Computed example of a mutant assay.
Amino acid sequence: MTTHIPAREIAERPIGYAGPNLSPTGLRLAPRTLASGVHALLATIPPKDNNGLVTGRDAALVVDAGITPDVARMIQDRCAELTARPLRYLVNTTYHGDHTFGNAAFPSETVIVSSRANRDNMGDLGYEKQVRSGNMYGDEALFDAVREWRRPNLTFDGHAEIDLGGRIVQLWHFGPGNGPGDTVVYVPDARVAWTGNLLAHAGIAHMLLQGGPQPYLATLRAVREALPDLATIVPGHGPMGDGPAAIDALVAYLERLHAEVTDSVAAGHTLEESIARCTDPWAGELDPTLVAALASYQIPQDQAVHGMRELCRNLHRLNILATYRLYTAR
């Protein structure tokens, strides 16, 4: 099968689908220091957006901008509590509005950096608001404050490096995954990567919004080869996790998804039949390491575990739908 990346993410959703609640209502960002000058800014309610701060001798770099200008200002406030270095760089891990709508609220002198593919997908603010409104759960009016979609003014294709003064930060675009331009921010001396929507804690379902299992698999294998020393990932959503374990878990999931949907299409099954036939890894208990990680949130653990299981089952059905539509269109 040939690789095909749709120009826009799939708009169709399974019957009864409930996606992640990304509304910033109630959001707080809890700093966690991973190494000297390397800080995760973790959402206190899953699966709202995480951020990050990396500092060097001369400058600081922020990972992702938040879903509204108010969230962007919250990110800057947390950064000011952690460093006096100027916020010289802001990296967008994806073009999605929950990571980029806050761009315009950063100082004009802050250089926004991302993959060329992400920038190329930041052209229609109205459409992006419409798409992300499905994840706002009644708080769509908060998008009224988003009047400008500030695009990256510095882009790269495969790999770039930023020198913050005594600390190098690597930026990688390995290929399509959740979207066409997923950007990984890697700090080699800390062995920490911010992975955006590309890679989450092992046991969390990912979303195939703008591609398919095969290109995603190629991207993950490239990550594994390029970053052999990777230890910790800070995903765009959900708890931090072990990087190699997360890659292994997602590779296994995508391989099975590809095989099962391919077989179902070949057998002439309908979409509904395919969803029923494909293995649901979240029908039972969650990965024990994920359950332990969910205990860090400021909500009851049983609530966090139940919510994560139901979200993963919904995302899994969406992945089957997206793969089925992709494979039946060939």
Results as ranks from 00 to 15, higher is better:
42 L>E: 02
44 T>E: 09
46 P>C: 13
49 D>W: 07
50 N>H: 06
51 N>I: 00
53 L>A: 03
53 L>I: 05
59 A>V: 05
59 A>M: 06
60 A>M: 15
62 V>R: 07
63 V>C: 04
66 G>I: 06
67 I>H: 02
67 I>Y: 01
72 A>H: 11
73 R>I: 12
75 I>Y: 01
75 I>P: 00
77 D>N: 14
78 R>E: 12
79 C>W: 13
80 A>T: 11
83 T>D: 08
83 T>K: 04
84 A>I: 13
85 R>F: 08
87 L>V: 08
88 R>T: 15
89 Y>L: 06
89 Y>R: 09
90 L>H: 00
96 H>L: 09
97 G>H: 06
98 D>M: 02
98 D>G: 11
99 H>Q: 11
102 G>F: 01
104 A>V: 06
109 E>H: 08
110 T>Y: 03
114 S>C: 12
114 S>E: 08
117 A>R: 12
118 N>I: 14
119 R>Q: 04
119 R>P: 13
120 D>S: 09
122 M>I: 00
123 G>R: 14
124 D>S: 02
125 L>V: 13
125 L>H: 04
126 G>F: 01
128 E>Q: 13
130 Q>K: 08
133 S>Y: 03
133 S>M: 03
134 G>R: 00
136 M>P: 02
138 G>E: 03
140 E>H: 01
141 A>C: 10
142 L>H: 00
142 L>T: 09
143 F>M: 01
143 F>I: 07
144 D>W: 05
145 A>I: 11
145 A>W: 08
147 R>P: 09
147 R>M: 01
148 E>I: 08
149 W>F: 07
149 W>S: 10
150 R>L: 03
150 R>A: 05
150 R>T: 09
151 R>W: 03
152 P>H: 05
153 N>V: 15
154 L>Y: 14
155 T>D: 13
155 T>G: 03
157 D>S: 06
157 D>T: 13
158 G>W: 09
159 H>T: 13
160 A>K: 13
161 E>D: 03
162 I>D: 12
166 G>R: 04
167 R>F: 10
167 R>P: 10
169 V>Y: 09
169 V>E: 06
170 Q>A: 02
171 L>A: 07
171 L>P: 00
171 L>T: 00
172 W>V: 05
173 H>P: 05
177 G>R: 12
178 N>L: 08
179 G>D: 12
183 T>Q: 14
184 V>D: 05
185 V>C: 00
185 V>H: 06
186 Y>T: 01
187 V>R: 00
